[in-house]
């Protein structure tokens, strides 16, 4: 039996969203707009100038949670990097600031108790995530640009790509448990719940984002390196 992909290019785009509403995020980051009627994935991608193979690779990975051996061959590295950059923008400029606002209102921030420290924890976390994403854009993405341009930068190979991904999601885990165990008792319950829901979702989405980088980006760069004759030091 051959391994099979969950969704094919002939699937209707609307079916994907009906099956799993979280795929709306993937669609948006690829630049696909709603209003596509009953068109198939292939048709929508063609109309909206999106690389269909890359889009489906991300969709299938997010849906199934693992990749097939031949996945790197389906991916346009440029399209995937564009997607990842859009994700960075979403987390840094939209989602994390929105959580901060809810947290700020929910814990009724004062300077004389732990509510202040909870916000401090969050701010430290945000700058950690920002640092991580900036590192990726400045080193990994620039390196890939140079690879795509045909003159790869010396001294970097994707195998040196550090894996401090774990921390990015695990600190959110810590924040959640601190709010739940030690949060201020006089907080506005609805606002704080809202912030907590968002933190759970953010944790899931960040974990998924990091997995896309590890399981889709890294293998496709390794393939690109091989095509450019760079010997990868990956095991």
């Amino acid at each position: 039996m051959e391994s099979e992909y969950h969704y094919s290019p002939a699937e209707k785009m609307a079916t994907l969203i009906a099956d799993n509403y979280r795929l709306i995020q993937v669609m948006t980051r690829f630049g696909i707009r709603v209003g596509f009627g009953d068109k198939t994935v292939a048709e929508v991608c063609r109309d909206q100038n999106v690389d269909c193979g890359t889009f489906l690779s991300v969709v299938n990975f997010v849906t199934d949670g693992y990749t097939h051996a031949d996945v790197a061959g389906q991916i346009s590295v440029a399209a995937l990097m564009h997607y990842l950059k859009q994700s960075h923008i979403y987390f840094l400029d939209y989602m994390l600031p929105a959580i901060r606002r809810k947290l700020l209102d929910g814990i009724r921030m004062r300077t004389d108790d732990v509510s202040f420290l909870i916000l401090k924890f969050f701010d430290e976390y945000m700058s950690q995530v920002r640092g991580h994403m900036e590192y990726e854009e400045k080193t990994v993405f620039l390196y890939v640009d140079s690879l795509l341009g045909g003159s790869p930068k010396e001294g970097f190979s994707i195998s040196t790509y550090s894996d401090h991904h774990e921390e990015v999601a695990s600190s959110l885990h810590e924040l959640k448990s601190i709010i739940i165990k030690y949060g201020p008792a006089d907080a506005d319950a609805n606002l704080l719940n809202d912030a907590l829901y968002d933190i759970y979702r953010c944790e899931e989405e960040l974990t998924s984002h990091c997995l896309v980088e590890d399981e889709l980006l890294v293998p496709s760069i390794v393939r690109l390196e091989q095509e450019s004759g760079i010997k990868s030091r990956m095991k």
Partner: peptide
């Protein structure tokens, strides 16, 4: 405690009255 950060420890210490703010 499942707390790995200094700020997290500070929150724990204050809530449990190990230190005063």
């Amino acid at each position: 405690l499942e707390i790995h950060s200094a700020t997290g420890l500070t929150i724990y210490a204050i809530v449990n009255h190990l230190v005063d703010l």
